[in-house]
Design a protein around this nucleic acid. Structure first.
Lengths: 246, 246
DNA sequence: TACCGATGTTTCACACCGTGAAACGAATGG
DNA sequence: CCATTCGTTTCACGGTGTGAAACATCGGTA
């Protein structure tokens, strides 16, 4: 039962404190302490350390903590968005063609992360910040990132994921097989009501799954019929984007 | 004499490990250990912890460490108040690398304005006050701010500008095309004798031209050969700075 | 094949460092 | 003016992070 730990508790706690800021940008010490379940005193020392290195700063007005510029500085060195920059042109082309928001997701462990996005210019549109982290269980892109993954990896992930109540693993696996056959996945008001999405896989030249390209918008515009119609365009764009990768 | 420390050593060390990635995106364990001056064993545990939380990942091909997507996720929640402030870190790094004065120019109508600068620390150096306003007709940064602007805007500006005597608009436009192809611009004793500069464009994520990053110094140090050599570094820095923008 | 150096990984005993209870100070407002 | 909440500091204790050393794996070299 007990897994051997080779990690450092104090560091884990510090990182957990940082991660608190992914659900709100401004926090007081006591709030953070409650959230991570640690003593005020401990969190105070953690924050002092993070502040000294510039990972958090104190808002002068509110006296609360927020993330510091060191994070931004580091984010410039995450190579994950390098290919994403190259792909931006192709994504803009697709946006102009379809008029909806285009996103690029990669899998990170049991989540997916939006590494690039171009927004729809319509009045009613999905907004989608780069860097957003979403569960791998729901949404068209999640299904793509699972369905086209290597079998061994996929099975490991399916075992590891915790499923929301109404979902059944067997039925889900069947759905994934259909997605592989079709070459793309859709979701209709699956993750959030009123929203729909269609997603296709991007493979690197090596054949390895790199990302999921998704088109998302309001479900009254992105109806199942419309999605079926534009699927070939999205698959083609995803294929082109794959060739841009090493 | 001795300052009381209220920080946590293990956390400080972990953050230092993260900061190593601001001077190179790929590192091996031993390299990192040398850089931060810690024992291999210690760094190994730190990295294992950072990896568990997704702050670093191991490149499958090279087996080396790089920053993980958690950083990107956090960066989405940092409020970048003033872009010029955010970019200062990157500019300081470039200054340390090249030893010359680094400036950041944005276009304001038919002028350019220096909105940020870090000075060379050499005895003979260009001095460059922030806020300085210069004509858009001469200098490497001017050419960048024109060459990479949207065609319609560029043409309007070219018509509006009043040209100094010896310049010809047709020849200038040809020069701008070459600059777009090269990805950077240079100037050698163009605006003031004894001075040279090299400049690259900074694009926001949206693809919009935001500013020109320039390296300037005495023309005996910044020879054409030297500028050609350091151009890739400047372009890379400008690219990173672009990712810091919304 | 045997050897080497360089890499990442694991083990282990010890001291030191991180921990949380508690007490403190400061600000707010009822 | 007391009560409450927040951030800060102190301190003794024991757990926890530490680095030397040994181990494991590679590629490269002779």
């Amino acid at each position: 039962m007990e897994e051997e730990k080779r990690t450092i508790r104090a560091v884990e706690r510090a990182l957990d404190v940082l991660l608190v800021f992914t659900s709100g940008s401004e926090w007081g010490l006591t709030e953070i302490a409650q959230r991570v379940g640690l003593h005020k005193s401990t969190v105070h020392r953690l924050l002092a350390t993070l502040e000294q290195r510039g990972f958090v700063v104190r808002d002068e007005a509110t006296e609360k903590y927020r993330l510091g510029l060191r994070i931004l500085e580091l984010s410039a060195y995450t190579r994950a968005d390098d290919p994403a920059v190259v792909m931006r042109g192709e994504m803009e082309r697709l946006r102009d063609q379809l008029g909806e928001t285009i996103s690029l997701y990669v899998r990170d462990r049991t989540d997916r992360v939006r590494i690039q996005a171009v927004q729809s210019e319509q009045a009613v549109r999905r907004v989608a910040p780069v860097g957003a982290r979403l569960p791998l269980t729901v949404g068209a892109s999640s299904k793509v990132l699972l369905a086209f993954e290597a079998p061994s990896v996929r099975d490991a992930l399916l075992s590891e994921l915790v499923w929301p109540a109404p979902m059944d693993r067997a039925a889900y696996e069947e759905q994934l097989r259909e997605i592989v056959a079709a070459g793309y996945a859709t979701s209709f008001e699956e993750r959030e009501p009123g929203a729909a999405a269609i997603s296709a896989p991007i493979f690197a030249r090596s054949g390895k799954l790199y990302a999921a390209l998704s088109v998302s918008g309001p479900s009254n515009r992105l109806t199942p019929d419309v999605m079926r119609e534009v699927a070939p365009d999205i698959i083609a764009a995803a294929k082109r984007m794959g060739t841009l990768l090493g």
